[in-house]
Nucleic acid binder design. Structure first.
Lengths: 332, 332
DNA sequence: CCTTTAGATGTAACCGGTTACATTTAAAGG
DNA sequence: CCTTTAAATGTAACCGGTTACATCTAAAGG
């Protein structure tokens, strides 16, 4: 491997001059600069990044913990993270945690062990064991956010979004509205449920908990949950699903039962994934700026890493948009 | 930051003993071992990974170049890569290249600059400029594979898979079969087209190139392509799409034209993404073992890195399965 | 022509581990 | 009790850059 000493020898200068030519060219005289660059070219020299990282104590890597990369929404968020990180000269170390806390802590260790400069967590869990005295490694929590996050956060106003969907369904005349929720202990689920109840309360309706089914954001779970709702004596006339993936599962189940969407049952989703406008019927849903979640998270994280952030952690609320398509219609 | 010297001091031993206690505990006497481990605990010491990587010239990181992470199929492949890498103690540096060769070469540079030990490329492009004399960095090419790849490869027998789909459509009585292809210059597209033609030829049919439309694997491109096919004077009775995402776009377009799937037009996809069994109607498609592509790629790559591979590069062909659902039916 | 001073370059310490080699310690054998 | 030998531990070089500080060069000013 060609190293800086070989290049220095080739150019007839010291290693310091080679290093300066590459890092701070303006302090090197033009003549020397040309000699060095020619030698770099000739030797096909590239600085050993591990040495640079080691010496400078900066890796320019960010760890990203994602619950399930196969989830279309998270994949988009990661796309945004990757794009923003790359533009700022950072790489991303990806970890598909599948919600396993041991894995999350192991990867978080990459920050503690200085193999990455910071961490983005897309789930409501703090992977850093708070050993007293130790400084907290730079971290940002995005998408599903801890209630008392010890770091900046980026999230949607899930409560308002769920309220908007529900109000849309109420406006269509629906009174028995089923809900296919996310996992029980998720803040996301809780907030969306609150928004759902807000809308019902504003319309003077009592919430009926027997119409709430838990899911896990995947199509099969939506399929199963819809089955449960349909098997009731008095099934709902509309179903609000906390993810488009579950909504697609639910619509399939509804059709299997010989019912039509939206004529017999309206279905609304959440996320506005790429397939939402192509499924049958196209899905009414909440559009989230997935890529922006990622970009924003990177921006906040780099603020901390570069110590541009002063004291208080920022908590960003991203905008949502109710996208009305054809899966919701007037109550029968 | 606590370093190995502090721990050594705390334990009353030399830095070498601390290092040995952590790397090769069996060469350290039990008594010393306990002392050192206690000191490690007390100081909350974790070795600086950048120093370890620098010294050992091994990073235990792999670069993964993925064309579009938002593509459901690739997301699954990455899931497999991540899982296999993690199990073997490797991290992954992810790059969403969007097909940009400059980006790909930049990330490939992470291997040349020793920030990663190897690279997995999911697209048919060799990011390493072959500077003569230089040893090729370890690389594996998976999914979409170069014809004369200078490395191990993992792929599907796309030709046979496409032939299987086409034979299924022919068996249903279809004679005018449209095809929504992938990008023009992709080996994937070419091989699937060959398989398509194989089946037609075996059935004694002449291929009709006017029924082939290019797409880019996304739902909107399938939607557009289907529109073109439907606008012909004599539209096809079946459409074979090179991806499920395009198939979903195509089905939407067909319904928008007031036609039914499969009664009026059959549609087949490729990939068997999670939504394939939940769209309407459930999609006939080719199931690919996406996660296995990733696992296999990691295994082959680590073989090279650990120099277990002898001379010849292995070229793995992964199995496919024709999954017949409800989007294909007898020709009208 | 000498002194001052800014700019260019060189020297070498340093980052935090790993490990070859040297040295010390302890156990075994005579 | 002394010698031999293996096991345990210590010393210090090394990985490849960066950069503080020292030194040298040359232009400017007196």
């Amino acid at each position: 491997m060609t190293n800086i000493r070989k290049v220095a020898e080739l150019a007839g200068v010291s290693v310091a001059t080679v290093s300066r030519t590459l890092r701070t060219p303006d302090v090197v005289s033009p003549g020397t600069r040309d000699k060095v660059l020619a030698a770099v070219e000739q030797a096909d020299y590239r600085p050993n990044l591990t040495a640079v990282q080691f010496r400078s104590q900066r890796t320019r890597n960010l760890v990203v913990l994602v619950p399930i990369i196969a989830n279309t929404f998270f994949a988009r968020v990661i796309g945004g993270i990757q794009e923003a990180a790359q533009r700022r000269g950072y790489g991303i170390l990806l970890c598909n945690t599948l919600g396993d806390e041991r894995t999350e802590r192991a990867y978080a260790g990459l920050v503690s062990t200085r193999q990455a400069d910071g961490l983005i967590q897309l789930r409501a869990y703090d992977p850093f064991t708070t050993s007293s005295g130790q400084a907290r490694p730079p971290m940002v929590n995005a998408c599903e956010v801890l209630d008392a996050a010890p770091c900046p956060t980026v999230k949607l106003d899930n409560r308002a979004a769920a309220r908007a969907v529900t109000e849309h369904l109420l406006a269509l005349g629906h009174r028995r509205i089923g809900m296919i929720k996310g996992p029980r202990n998720s803040p996301l689920t809780r907030d969306r449920l609150l928004g759902f109840q807000d809308a019902l309360a504003a319309a003077g309706l009592m919430p009926d908990e027997s119409l709430w089914c838990p899911g896990d954001f995947t199509p099969p779970s939506g399929h199963r949950a819809a089955g449960e709702l349909l098997s009731r004596a008095d099934p709902p006339t509309a179903i609000f699903c906390e993810s488009d993936e579950m909504a697609m599962g639910a619509m399939r189940r509804i059709k299997e039962a010989g019912l039509r969407v939206p004529e017999d049952i309206s279905v609304a989703g959440f996320d506005d994934i790429a397939f939402a406008s192509f499924c049958d019927p196209p899905l009414t849903t909440i559009a989230q700026p997935a890529e922006d979640f990622g970009r924003e998270a990177v921006a906040l994280l780099l603020d901390i890493i570069d110590e541009r952030g002063d004291a208080a952690y920022e908590h960003r609320i991203m905008p949502f948009e109710l996208v009305i398509r054809e899966s919701t219609g007037p109550a029968a």
